[in-house]
Design a protein around this nucleic acid. Structure first.
Length: 558
RNA sequence: UGACCCAUGGUGUAAUGGCAACACAGCAGAUUUUGGUUCUGUUAUUCUAGGUUCGAGUCCUGGUGGGUCAACCA
């Protein structure tokens, strides 16, 4: 078994410990699975699960299956199947086999007949309402169904009638015969099959009865000989049932282990609510950059490496957690800082005329593409007498810690000249509309005519050459740190962040304009020059930080 | 007033009966042609009461707090 070591400086998480002790006890094989229901797009929470399942198997020389848990045809669709496959691939994982719970419908059905024959399952004629009320509550035991003691033959006949379509939806169900007084509600004669005259996205109208999750999942794991079936905490009460079916059917003993699902501040993880956001058009789609979906992260410029690094950093445990969104941003910044090429842009333009620069002259200035990586090379950016700088890069009455442009002060144009502000031009109502500056013609390339240094370095674009563009800045969709924690009488919709999408005009250096001639300007090529960004509500700020912190912008060519 | 799961800095995750650590966030400083990056320093942690033990974050018991479960969803 080829093993890959855990990252240096990190100790084993509890799942790795379980696997290592299994191996120590003689287990020869590690086989996991990632089992999404194709009823929505994958989000960052799934990314944690994907990285866990694939990562664990890889670390111990095992395999991981991709299995679609498609036992409820009313919610599922091939659109989701396709997106899930695309997202898992994008994250960088290869599955050993692609399976569907629906592939096993015939086997599951035949096992159900075995259960009936063993006297462990019966057809119940009660209504949904009756079944609900006779199940009891968490504190009071349930009561047995009047149909619980039907004969094996009658059950067999009725169950095959269910399959043949002799009954309407909801008319009958197949239930396991366990214990209506069991302290675990899941063990109070759980439903195995329900009647659903609904077309299934893969099996069409072949079936009109469909297995429930509890009856299907463990058996699917068993069929695929999954050794470690890893799921989230809320399934821990299902484990006794998972084990019960495997024991009664006497099939391959897969085992279930639970870990705490990922929660992120300001982020909604519920698939059901995300679907509502899409359906009610609060967002433009599943890949709206404000969504926590993997396709949205991709569109926003996240790299698969950064998402995997995030999954590794959040760790795995069994206690509920809320990860600071800042950690996700740290991970993408860490990666992008290494690989992203920088460009200059101005969002709030202030015109600057360099009075001692020859009129009509235009020169090309060499700019480094990525200070973190010399191999990224450089590009030529035009410079002329009239340029735009960021409004915020000038203060008429500077505060103490402000070291950018100010009256009589000097600043460096990034990769260009030192300029000195000689005059502030104002409109009749007092607004600053133009700066008149002089430049030091000896100051290109970091030097100056007399060796003096300046502290401030600012972005600029040549006014005549700049490409106007529309910049969309995205921040969190919700104003609430925990969007599930809504006040009485309100819903998550009441907490949508009105500033989650802000459109601003921007002026870009020409090289970006060329690239922007396509239909859409991809974020991963522009994200690093957009205005500073703080993802917390009300903190969307524009300043001269044009680093990677501004990870959420996308540009549309004008 | 049930069963099960969980409790370590602001947020996460380690420490497997023997010096409570790492990352993110925060703060301070240095470097820097991005107020970015990098580097240095720094603040801050075992829910509670008992018990076992030479020694408890860790084991035991009680309490408190949080979570999950009463879909013919997964």
């Amino acid at each position: 078994m080829s093993e890959i070591p855990v990252p240096e400086g990190r100790s084993l998480n509890f799942l790795e410990e379980i696997i290592e002790s299994d191996i120590a006890r003689g287990q020869k094989r590690v086989h996991t699975r990632f089992p999404p229901e194709p009823n929505g797009y994958l989000h960052i929470g799934h990314a944690k699960s994907i990285c866990l399942n694939f990562g664990l198997a890889k670390r111990y020389g095992g395999l991981t299956n991709l299995r679609f848990d498609d036992t409820n045809p009313v919610k599922e669709d091939t659109e989701y199947v396709d997106s899930i496959k695309e997202d898992v691939k994008w994250l960088g994982f290869e599955w050993a086999g692609e399976y569907y719970a629906s592939d096993y419908f015939e086997q599951l059905y035949s096992w159900a007949i075995d259960m009936i024959n063993k006297g462990l399952a019966y057809v119940d004629d009660q209504t949904q309402e009756q079944i609900r009320t006779t199940r009891g509550t968490v504190t009071v035991p349930g009561t047995p169904s009047p149909w619980r003691e039907r004969s094996v033959d009658e059950n067999l006949m009725l169950f095959s009638g269910m399959r043949e379509g002799k009954f309407a939806d909801g008319e009958k169900v197949l239930r396991a015969k366990i214990d209506m007084a069991h302290p675990n509600m899941l063990m109070r004669d759980p439903i195995l099959y329900r009647i659903l005259h609904t077309e299934h996205h893969r099996t069409g109208d072949k079936w009109c009865i469909y297995p429930m999750y509890d009856y299907a999942h463990g058996q699917c794991d068993s069929i695929e000989r999954i050794t470690h079936s890893i799921c989230t905490l809320e399934f821990d009460v299902h484990r006794p049932l998972y084990d019960w079916f495997i024991e009664k059917l006497d099939i391959f003993p897969s085992h279930q282990y639970e870990f705490a699902r990922l929660n992120l501040t300001y982020t909604m993880m519920s698939k059901r609510k995300l679907l509502q956001l899409v359906q009610n058009k609060y967002v433009s789609g599943w890949d709206d950059p404000r969504m926590p979906t993997i396709c949205a992260l991709r569109r926003r410029g996240f790299t698969p490496e950064s998402v995997r690094a995030f999954a590794e950093r959040v760790g795995v445990a069994k206690r509920d957690n809320v990860i600071d969104l800042g950690l996700l941003e740290f991970c993408v910044r860490e990666d992008l800082n290494r690989i992203a090429e920088r460009r200059m842009a101005v969002v709030n333009p202030l015109k600057v005329v360099i009075t001692n620069y020859p009129e009509g002259k235009r020169e090309m200035i060499s700019c480094v593409n990525n200070p973190e990586n010399p191999d990224a090379g450089s590009r030529e950016v035009p410079f002329s007498r009239e340029i735009y700088i960021e409004k915020d890069d000038f203060m008429e009455i500077p505060s103490k810690k402000f070291f950018r442009l100010q009256p009589g002060g000097e600043v460096r144009l990034r990769y260009g000249y030192l300029i000195k502000c000689e005059e502030v031009v104002k409109s009749p109502d007092g607004e600053i509309i133009e700066l008149r500056c002089t430049y030091d013609d000896q100051s290109l390339g970091g030097s100056s005519s007399d060796g003096r240094k300046v502290k401030g370095v600012i972005h600029w674009v040549s006014a005549a050459d700049a490409i106007p563009a529309e910049l969309r800045l995205y921040s969190t969709l919700f104003t609430l740190e925990n969007p599930d924690d809504v006040e009485e009488g309100k819903t998550f919709v009441d907490y949508l962040n009105p500033e989650s999408l802000v459109t601003v005009n921007a002026w870009l250096e020409p090289a970006l304009g060329t690239a922007a001639q396509g239909e859409k300007f991809q974020f991963e090529r522009v994200g690093y020059f957009t205005p500073d960004y703080d993802s917390r509500p009300g903190k969307l700020v524009f300043n001269r930080t044009v680093g990677l912190k501004d990870s959420w912008a996308k540009i549309a060519a004008k």
